[in-house]
Amino acid sequence: MSVRKPAESSPESVARANRKRLTAEEGARAMAEVGRQAIEIRKNMARLRELRETREAAVASRLASLPAPASKKRARKLPR
């Protein structure tokens, strides 16, 4: 049984280590991209929420400024 020294690396082990390093780098880039997208989504949601709340406030103030509608009397049904 032969024990290899760390300096002696076979081409297969070098290739495996290289693939592992590339995979780790790609994973880190993917996680960073997901983080950036999540931040962009939260910013957009906050912007849309602000627009919706502004629109709802404008509608509420417009409705509040209108006179109250006159209530209609319901016609009673006559018994048969």
Rank of each mutant, 00 (worst) to 15 (best):
residue 16 R to V: 05
residue 13 S to A: 13
residue 70 A to Y: 03
residue 40 E to T: 05
residue 60 A to P: 00
residue 78 L to D: 03
residue 49 R to W: 04
residue 58 A to P: 00
residue 32 A to F: 04
residue 7 A to D: 10
residue 11 P to A: 08
residue 24 A to N: 07
residue 1 M to V: 10
residue 18 N to T: 09
residue 63 L to N: 12
residue 19 R to V: 00
residue 1 M to L: 11
residue 28 A to E: 13
residue 69 P to I: 11
residue 23 T to V: 04
residue 19 R to E: 01
residue 36 R to Y: 03
residue 50 E to V: 04
residue 52 R to E: 12
residue 3 V to D: 13
residue 1 M to Y: 07
residue 29 R to Y: 02
residue 52 R to V: 14
residue 33 E to V: 01
residue 58 A to E: 14
residue 2 S to T: 08
residue 21 R to C: 01
residue 77 K to D: 06
residue 7 A to Y: 09
residue 43 K to V: 01
residue 39 I to L: 13
residue 11 P to H: 06
residue 16 R to I: 06
residue 20 K to C: 05
residue 59 V to N: 07
residue 37 Q to G: 07
residue 10 S to L: 10
residue 60 A to C: 02
residue 68 A to I: 11
residue 12 E to P: 00
residue 66 L to C: 10
residue 9 S to H: 04
residue 34 V to C: 07
residue 30 A to N: 05
residue 76 R to K: 09
residue 18 N to Y: 02
residue 40 E to K: 09
residue 29 R to V: 01
residue 54 T to S: 14
residue 41 I to H: 06
residue 73 K to W: 02
residue 40 E to S: 10
residue 49 R to H: 09
residue 60 A to Q: 09
residue 36 R to I: 04
residue 53 E to L: 09
residue 68 A to Q: 13
residue 24 A to H: 04
residue 27 G to I: 05
residue 48 L to D: 15
residue 56 E to D: 15
residue 1 M to D: 09
residue 69 P to A: 15
residue 64 A to V: 05
residue 30 A to K: 07
residue 71 S to Q: 14
residue 57 A to S: 08
residue 11 P to N: 10
residue 46 A to V: 07
residue 56 E to T: 04
residue 21 R to E: 05
residue 73 K to H: 04
residue 70 A to N: 05
residue 11 P to I: 06
residue 69 P to M: 14
residue 74 R to S: 06
residue 13 S to L: 14
residue 8 E to S: 13
residue 40 E to G: 03
residue 47 R to C: 11
residue 65 S to I: 02
residue 26 E to A: 15
residue 76 R to M: 05
residue 57 A to Q: 10
residue 42 R to P: 00
residue 65 S to E: 14
residue 43 K to W: 02
residue 67 P to M: 03
residue 67 P to R: 12
residue 35 G to Q: 09
